[in-house]
Amino acid sequence: MRFIVTLILGLLPQALVAQAWEDRQTFNEGASTQVLRIISSTDTALFAPIIESFVSQYPYIAIEYLVTGTADIDRRFRANPDAFDLVISSAMDLQFKSANDGLARRLTNIAHPAWAQWRQSLFAFTSEPAAIVINRDAFAGHPIPNTRQELIQALRARPEVFRGRIGTYDVRQSGLGYLFATQDARASETYWRLMEVMGALDLRLYCCSGEMIDDLTDGTIAVAYNVLGSYAKARVKSKDKIQVIFPADFPTTMMRTAMVSSQAQHPEMAAAFIQHLIALQSSADEVSFPLPPLNSQLNQAEHATIALEPALMTFLDALKRKSFLAEWEDAVIHNN
């Protein structure tokens, strides 16, 4: 509750200054001799405990936490790499490209498994599978779909129920949505079939997860595709209203990543924060680290987790992106 209050109090003046931020908060403001600026796509509510425990360890550090969408993070960070100390995003591909382009600082003292980091500059600290989230009311008396195929069948069976009540990311605006879409498309043709079915049912497109989950909770939409399940759980108070399904046919798991800007104003502090982040995620304490920690059973589901490798740059290629978006629009919007 404290955060909500802080949020409201904080937002009132700031909303006038910088309307572009989804959220903007300063922690430990009194000690603001040094202000660590974090640009992130993670909701403040989920990230606040992590920051709080950090500032309790380093009381002389103030942290300004700026929240915006993943694509927007990439734009802003590339425009002003010196304006931010830390960049935290769920769009692995955009993060990877920034690191590849030399925008991330190499931290040599951080011990982290090779699969969870890239070039000692990009560090993964969560394992979050993409989920189909449904409103239970819409499926009352009907079987809950466990795979994409079953979802297609369910949508086709009752188009009157689902018309205009399906939501997913607008991949043109959301970096994470684009990542999930491209990985799905890479994994199976089912993705395109699903998109065509959804497109035929007047698919609603969202820029951000927040609005999508809000609409799902109040029943505006019945199905949200490719949402972060953990996110949905965290946002929704009455958990029995919705159900989170991890598709059994092929799961797509994303790792949230953090990096220190190569032009960070406080590189040591930023590195200390990453250290803190990594240490915290391995503690597996849901109170101090509300995000899903790096998957310990990653080995068995490894194929499903998007790897931190140069291939992430494939779909960011201008030509490839153009043709992918054209195909996506063809499937989703053409039918509207």
Binding site: Q120, E309, P310, A311, L312, T314, D317, L319
Partner: peptide
């Protein structure tokens, strides 16, 4: 040019 995913994937190295 529909760059194959493997084109960049094969460039993964232990030293990133």
């Amino acid at each position: 040019i529909d760059i194959p995913y493997a084109s960049f994937s094969m460039l993964s190295t232990p030293m990133d």
